[in-house]
Design a protein around this nucleic acid. Structure first.
Lengths: 115, 115
DNA sequence: GGCATATTCAACCAATCGGTTGACGATCGC
DNA sequence: GCGATCGTCAACCGATTGGTTGAATATGCC
């Protein structure tokens, strides 16, 4: 399936999935390691990863028995083009982004990662 | 309710709602006029507008018996900050955006606005 | 007042979502 | 080969989504 705006935005609409993307920003990770910080089953995380993968936001490659997850930020490009069309946003600096991530992750932590 | 990334991205995940936002980019519109090009009931459009409104993407103001819908592009700012954090996208020019919109609207037209 | 117009509400429906559990198939280490 | 580990599959569950229809609520016009 070619990723559409529908699938990309739908994938981004879940806080668990956004948290996963933020984790993958640091480094590629195995499925088990992705699941570790979350208070939910491995199967649930596996489903989230499948959704991110179908949206093109990550790729997964199996090496041995571990499946590595890798961020694919290019999938955000079309969505970013779409959004920037409204409001002519100037380029956002990464400090803004980091502060944003801290706020969001902090909020999730406060409610136990998930609510 | 203060709009969250959850509600903003979820609102953007539906093609009907994105088409509505694109229409409002041109001008403010009454609910009935928003509904006109779509092959679905007025009530359905009313619900879509409520979702966009809860996400902060539009505002609605009732004047007389007609309720005017107005784009509120600022609500996209947080989401845009979030997305640009991945991939350091350069500013996108509006020509790109217009071509993009044409493609998307064209695709929807081809399947009868909705599939 | 009375009718038409603009919009929402309420109830319903099928489909999807986000989660669970338990069984299963691969692969590694020994 | 065997047991442990990695990950998915399948079936199930309750909640939400995107749509419908019909009735209800404003408001405007004459």
């Amino acid at each position: 399936m070619t990723p559409t705006l529908d699938t990309v935005f739908a994938a981004l609409a879940d806080p668990t999935r956004r948290a996963i993307l933020a984790m993958l920003l640091e480094d590629d990770m195995a499925v088990t390691d992705v699941a570790e910080p979350f208070e939910m089953s491995l199967a649930a995380i596996s489903k989230h990863l499948a959704i991110l993968s179908r949206a093109g936001l990550i790729s997964q490659e199996k090496r041995g028995r571990v499946k590595w997850c890798k961020l694919e930020p290019d999938a955000l490009r079309d969505a970013s083009v779409w959004m920037q069309g409204f409001g002519q946003f100037e380029a956002v600096n990464l400090d803004d982004f980091e502060r944003f991530l801290e706020r969001e992750l902090g909020a999730e932590q406060a409610e136990g990662v998930r609510d």
